[in-house]
Design a protein around this nucleic acid. Structure first.
Length: 428
RNA sequence: GGAGAGAUGGCUGAGUGGUCGAAAGCGCUCCCCUGCUAAGGGAGUAAGGGUUAAAAGCCCUUCGAGGGUUCGAAUCCCUCUCUCUCCGCCA
């Protein structure tokens, strides 16, 4: 959520910033509505004050044993007037809140302008796409050739956009997850965190998926519904909900491995083949809570933490800064890390690292105590994939493939593979 | 699933209709005392919002959430959510 104070004072500036995203914020309508709010609020508070004052004097009169009948008569219709005013105020405030929850975050100044992902700005590259010396297979061909990747089996059980993996390939994904968790906990100072996969609506409002993107989520039909998490960002960031951290407790760094569930509504036809875009996938997520003035630096660091994973695995990648039209709803600035996929001859997103500054914190009242003023203030939240395990698996398969269709195990994963150095076709 | 208890400020925890935004303790901040890695004394210390150019001041709201009773609700009533205890069931 954008600071409502800022909305009021600089509505035109806000609108200009959001316009860079292609988002239209009707500043005049908002300000007009806020004027009504202001008038109603003053009226309501005046009546409340009147009520409080008279209630107090009735109490005092009663204590003295005076006759309170005339006093009661004087406030006879106050209740009705107050109730009408309160209801009108509540309605207007509700409208304002709806608008505010529907606004994306303000973009950081250095986010480049652009309309789509084609306008993203490449920041750096690491590694060279390897010369395989033969025609690269994609992960589907590789996995099915190994007999360890089965989309038909998955569709029998759950339909499209699911996968079944078996044997060494299934283990390889687990190895990747373990490797990532161990790296982030031992080398980057993150606390391993296990959190719920089912969450309440309130948690999703906090991180920004609700109320606007409900159609992207899976929802249970229980009496009070749960939503399946689309990313560990949701439960883990909500650890800061209603918290006031002491200044010396920050930064807080969590790393969590969870499955992620996405309805992929509206993505029909995109990446329908293979396991690039699934309803269910595994991800290792990095989340940080930091002091307000530290978040931009923290974004650089967090992105670097994700990059380390790819570097250790010797997977070529590039980092792009998302342009104004491609930055996610609640993010002020986002770096995507794109890994080289020989099967597609393309860089594909494997991590997205974002600074939300106080946008999520305001929604979930996540604060820290400012050491200088002693007052609570909103902290800043960040998150990034460190990295998506399903896509990392694809990247390893395609980059480590051999001419015969087998897959070498990257060196850092060997300890997690029980001595297996190469995945070959299942004999069964 | 059955029975019961509870949800109060940064934390612990009093408070069952009117000077309660809320005792006390802890923590924190400042001051004093003390020749010292201790102790003692004093003061202050919830958040959000409105009014204001801003501050001060004044006002409003908030004691899990929402509704209700009342001139007046942390306190009474209803609904919901959550937590805990016991029993049952269960990986």
């Amino acid at each position: 959520m954008i600071d409502p104070k800022l909305l009021r004072q600089s509505a035109a500036d806000v609108a200009a910033n959001l316009a860079r995203r292609g988002f239209e914020f009707d500043a005049d309508a908002y300000l007009a509505l806020d004027e009504r709010r202001k008038a109603l609020q003053v009226e309501t508070e005046t009546l409340q004050n009147e009520r409080n004052t008279s209630a107090r004097s009735i109490g005092q009169a009663k204590a003295k044993g005076d006759d309170i009948a005339p006093l009661l008569a004087a406030v006879k219709d106050l209740g009705d007037r107050l109730e009408a005013s309160e209801q009108a105020l509540q309605a207007v405030q509700g409208e304002l809140t709806d608008i505010e929850l529907g606004l994306p975050n303000l973009l950081a100044d250095d986010v480049p302008d652009g309309a789509s992902e084609d306008d993203n700005l490449e920041v750096r590259r690491w590694g060279e796409p390897a010369e395989l010396g033969f025609k690269a297979r994609d992960h589907i061909e590789l996995g099915e050739g190994l007999g360890q990747l089965d989309f038909d089996a998955a569709s029998k059980i759950s339909g499209a956009r699911f996968v079944v993996m078996t044997g060494a390939l299934a283990r390889l994904q687990r190895a990747l997850i373990q490797f990532m968790l161990d790296t982030h906990t031992t080398e980057h100072g993150y606390t391993e965190t296990y959190a719920p996969y089912l969450v309440r609506a309130q948690a999703l409002v906090g991180t920004g998926q609700l109320p606007k993107f409900e159609e992207d989520l899976f929802k249970t039909e229980t009496e009070t519904p749960f939503y399946l998490i689309p990313t560990a960002e949701v439960p883990v960031t909500n650890l800061a909900r209603d918290m006031i951290f002491d200044a010396d407790e920050l930064p807080v760094r969590h790393v969590a491995h969870t499955p992620c569930f996405r309805s992929e509504a509206g993505s029909h036809g995109q990446d329908t083949r293979g396991m690039i875009r699934q309803h269910q996938f595994e991800k290792v997520e990095l989340v940080q809570f930091v002091a307000p003035d530290a978040s931009m630096q923290a974004l650089e660091e967090l992105t670097g933490h994700a990059e380390v994973i790819l570097q250790k695995l010797r997977l070529p990648y590039r980092v792009v800064m998302l342009c104004s039209g491609d930055v996610g709803f609640g993010s002020a600035k986002t770096y995507d890390i794109e890994v080289w996929l020989p099967g597609q001859q393309k860089y594909r997103e494997i991590s997205s690292c974002s600074n939300y500054n106080d946008y999520q914190a305001r929604r979930m009242k996540a604060r820290r105590r400012n050491p200088d003023t002693g007052k609570p203030e909103l902290l800043h939240t960040l998150n990034g994939s460190g990295v998506a395990a399903g896509r990392a698996l694809i990247a390893v398969m395609e980059n480590y493939q051999e001419a015969d269709g087998s897959i070498r195990i990257p060196e850092p994963l060997l300890p997690y593979m029980g001595g297996l150095e190469r995945i070959e076709a299942s004999t069964s």
